[in-house]
């Protein structure tokens, strides 16, 4: 067993390895699908790490001007919520649970999704929409909030993400 507790070092410089850049992909459109990616991106910037956020598929709702204020918690097919499926399917359940969760989030001083997205853009993180998803949902640039830097292809995403870590959520 090794007794060396020093951090791993990169071979060429001998300096401790640190994360310098991350690209966060947000692919889900539920409250619990969007927040983790936003927190990872914002937290990266707060540590001085370069960050880009790529919104794809239902994750696009997080930057959709008319939808991002209405992101809901999924109450059906979400075992983590500990609500019976038949109960979760009742009309209004998703709204009620979302309201409860939003209140808890606010109590922890975590911003709402619209405010969070704007703040992350202000931190200097790049905000990108996935072209394939935009086309699939027949959306346009004008459907998105102004903080979106561009609508890009997957190839362009990999160009932007080059040299960093990719986090898929």
């Amino acid at each position: 067993m090794s007794t060396d507790t020093s951090p791993s070092t990169s071979t060429d410089t001998g300096a401790p390895e640190t994360i310098e850049k991350v690209s966060v992909i947000i692919s889900k459109g539920s409250l619990d699908g969007i927040y983790p990616g936003l927190i990872m991106a914002n937290g990266a910037r707060a540590e001085g790490i370069e960050a880009n956020v790529f919104f794809t598929f239902f994750g696009l709702d997080a930057i959709h001007a008319k939808r991002h204020e209405h992101i809901k918690v999924a109450t059906v097919g979400n075992p983590g919520l500990h609500v019976a499926t038949w109960l979760g399917g009742l009309p209004g359940m998703s709204s009620v649970m979302t309201h409860v969760m939003e209140k808890q989030i606010e109590e922890l001083d975590i911003p709402s999704i619209p405010e969070f997205v704007e703040m992350i853009s202000d931190t200097g993180a790049g905000m990108y929409a996935c072209k394939a998803s935009v086309d699939l949902f027949k959306m346009e640039r004008s459907d998105f909030i102004e903080q979106v830097d561009d609508i890009i292809t997957v190839g362009e995403f990999y160009d932007i993400a080059a040299g960093g870590h990719i986090i898929f959520t």
Binding site: A46, G48, M119, D122, G124
Partner: peptide, 28 residues
């Protein structure tokens, strides 16, 4: 304070905070 709290109450916006302290405002 967190960066968000700084941006809301210090009179310096989040955008400016990151320009002033590029390696992470709260930490730096």
């Amino acid at each position: 304070p967190t960066v968000r709290a700084l941006g809301k109450t210090s009179g310096v916006t989040v955008k400016e905070l990151y320009q002033l302290f590029p390696k992470g405002p709260a930490k730096m």
